[in-house]
């Protein structure tokens, strides 16, 4: 048996030898704890517009929770139970709040040009979340199993059929749309939201267009940590 040198030996930490170790090193390098859960923010983070990102996530969780409640007793429950109808109303209004907060967040980030400073992918994942959410909401309207669903599905089929999507994605197939609405799309949107939030934590909140010299790395009169 050949004995190998301990990679964390006296010479200091080396590149981890295992996949697991490399993943850990990369994760801790990209997301040190104080960056993942910071208790300080840059001094310019002082506007109500900043709360709409977190409000969107909060609304997303309420949407997921109320959707989960609707799932417990199945897709027809809300038609025959007063409690079910109220949970459906919670789901609808939390979606309205979610979409409204997300769009206001998008407006805010546009006017901040929040893609500056290597943050382009943060904008990209955010925009993908927006379109993913529209798709998820759309499939939700399709699985209400009422007149609204009937009308929306028979109209929407034309748009989707006209470019061939309808040949595989059939908006009049309740079973298929229910699967997309309560599993596939929330999974995709949830995953992209997670990546989006991690990107924000990794790069931090975009700085203003104009900065005080004191806030620049080269500022001689600024005390360094």
């Amino acid at each position: 048996m050949t004995l190998l040198e301990d990679p964390t030996g006296p010479q200091g930490p080396l590149r981890a030898a295992t996949w697991t170790g490399r993943l850990r090193d990369r994760a801790t390098k990209s997301f040190p704890p104080e960056q993942l859960l910071p208790d300080r923010q840059p001094i310019y983070v002082a506007s109500w517009i900043y709360v709409f990102g977190v409000a969107t996530i909060a609304a997303f969780l309420v949407v997921l929770a109320t959707g989960t409640l609707l799932a417990v007793q199945g897709p027809q429950w809300w038609h025959r139970s007063g409690t079910g109808h109220y949970v459906n109303s919670l789901h609808l209004w939390s979606v309205e709040l979610f979409m409204a907060f997300m769009v206001i967040h998008l407006w805010g980030k546009f006017w901040m040009a929040a893609w500056r400073g290597k943050r382009a992918m943060t904008w990209v994942t955010g925009a993908v979340c927006f379109f993913g959410s529209i798709g998820t909401a759309f499939t939700g309207y399709l699985v209400q199993s009422n007149f609204d669903s009937q009308f929306i599905s028979t109209q929407a089929k034309d748009g989707l059929n006209s470019v061939g999507i309808g040949s595989r994605f059939n908006v009049m197939d309740f079973g298929q749309m229910l699967m997309w609405h309560i599993f596939l799309l929330p999974l995709i949107v949830g995953a992209v939201v997670l990546v989006h939030v991690l990107q924000v934590r990794r790069r931090g909140v975009v700085p203003p267009f104009l900065v005080h010299p004191i806030d620049l790395p080269a500022a001689p009169d600024r005390a360094r940590p």
Binding site: A46, W48, I49, F52
Partner: peptide, 24 residues
Amino acid sequence: VVISLMLLLFAAALLLPFPKGRAS
């Protein structure tokens, strides 16, 4: 009403003063 409320919220978010946090 929904769209007007969104625009109103956006304008309010830009214009209303944000409470000053403690300096780090």
